[in-house]
């Protein structure tokens, strides 16, 4: 399977990574090479094989319903690149 340049742009957009026009064809080549490499899997018959959901034979761990975290806004805000009082601040979002 290979990708076209529009797909490269679409995927970059999905991943929120700006891609300059002159990067697209190089990226396309690299993605194509990786996709060609993983193409090998298609020769395997995987009919009826369950996809792995967890590599260890265990099930979900559950926590008790107790409040024992949070209550320290500074701790979660101290690394923010932009803040206003105790809010994170981002360019205006239009809904």
């Amino acid at each position: 399977m290979s990708v076209d340049e529009n797909t490269v742009r679409r995927v970059a957009r999905l991943a929120r990574i700006a891609v300059a026009d002159d990067e697209v064809s190089k990226l396309k080549g690299e993605l194509d090479a990786i996709l060609a490499f993983v193409e090998e899997l298609s020769e395997l018959d995987v009919e009826g094989v369950p996809p792995m959901t967890s590599v260890i034979p265990a099930t979900a761990r559950l926590r008790d319903d107790v409040v024992n975290d949070g209550e320290d806004a500074e701790k979660v805000l101290m690394n923010a690149p932009a803040r206003e009082a105790d809010f994170y601040v981002v360019p205006k979002v239009v809904e």
Binding site: D69, G70, A73, K75, V76, A85, D86
Partner: peptide, 16 residues
């Protein structure tokens, strides 16, 4: 483990 309480000051009921 952070609280679900309503009406708290901004980003106070927030864990890592």
């Amino acid at each position: 483990g952070s609280s679900t309480g309503f009406g708290a000051s901004p980003n106070s009921h927030v864990s890592l």
